[in-house]
Amino acid sequence: MDNTRKEWMLNALIAGVLLAVPLWAWLANEPFIITLATRIAILAIAGVGLNIALGLGGMVSFGHALYLGVGGYVAGIAAHHAFHGTPILGLSGTNQMLPIWAMAMLLSGALAGIVGALSLRTSGIFFIMITLAFAQMGFFFTLSWPAYGGEDGLPIFVRNQFPGLNTARPWEFFLIVYGVLMLALALFATLRAARFGAALMAIRQNPDRAAAIGISPFGIKLVAFILSGMITGLAGAMMADLTRFVSPAMIAWTMSGEMIVIIILGGVGRLFGPVAGAAILVGFEVFFGGLTEHWKLWLGLVLLAVVLFARGGLIGLIAGRAHHG
C-alpha cells in the first residue's frame, strides 16, 4: 500500500474515532468525554490554521495565540453586551455564533494582515521574535483592559447559539465544532492541492527560485498568513464558547507554543497532523495530568522523541513520508 493511501486511511480512522468516542459518551451519558473531544476538535481547528502558515509556508509563527485570543474576545465581548443589553460602538451585542464567527474571522484576518505585512519582510529568528512580540502586545493589552475583565478575564454566562441546535447540550455543540473542523480540513486539502499550496511550498523550499517562475513570495505568504489567522480566530471564538470564559491566558506565549507543539506532534504540513497532535496533547493533559502535576515534563520527552526520531509526527510515523499531490 502506498503512503498516500495509508495516510488517507489513517485520516479516515482518526476522523471516525473523533466522532465515535463522543457519540458513545453521549449514549453513555458521559458529558466530560464529549467536552474533551470538543476541546481536541477546537485545538485541531486552531492547528489547521497554523498548519497553513507553518506546515505549508514554513512560517514559524510564535504568536498565533494572538488570533485565538481575538476570536475568543470577539465571542466574549459580543456575548457580554448581548447579556447585559448594552451597545458596543452603537451596535447591539449578539449571542449568535454565526455572526460572531464572521466577526472573529474578519478581525483576526485583518490583524494577521497587519502583523504579516510587517513581519514577513523578515525570516528565521527575526520572524519568530516579531510574531511573538505582537502576541505579547495583545496579551498585555487585554491584561490592562478593565472594561472586559482585565487579568480576571470575561465570563460568557450562556453559551452562544447556533440555528437549529441546542448548544448548551455538549453533544450538539460538539457536532457544530466537528463540522467546522471537517470544513477547515477540506479547505486545507483544497489549498494544498491547488496552485496556491504548491506555490507556498515552493517558496518554503527556495523563495528566489520560486520568484524566478513568477511566484510573488511576499504576496502568497501574506495571503496564507491571513487565512491562517482567520481559521485560528474562528477556533478562538469556539474555545471561548466551550470554556464560557475568555482571558489574557488565551494570548499567552505558552498558548502559541502549545499550538506549535500540536503541529509537531501530529505532523508538520500533514492534513490530519493538527487533529492527531491535539488529541495527543489533550490526552497527556487528562491522563498524565491526573497522575502528576509535572505532566508537561513527559510531554516534553515525547516531543523530543518526535523531533529526533519521527520528524513527520504521529501521522508520519504511521503513514510514512509525505507524498502529497
Partner: peptide, 8 residues
Amino acid sequence: FAPLTVTE
C-alpha cells in the same frame, strides 16, 4: 523543488 511532486 525537490520535496514537491512533479505535478506540484
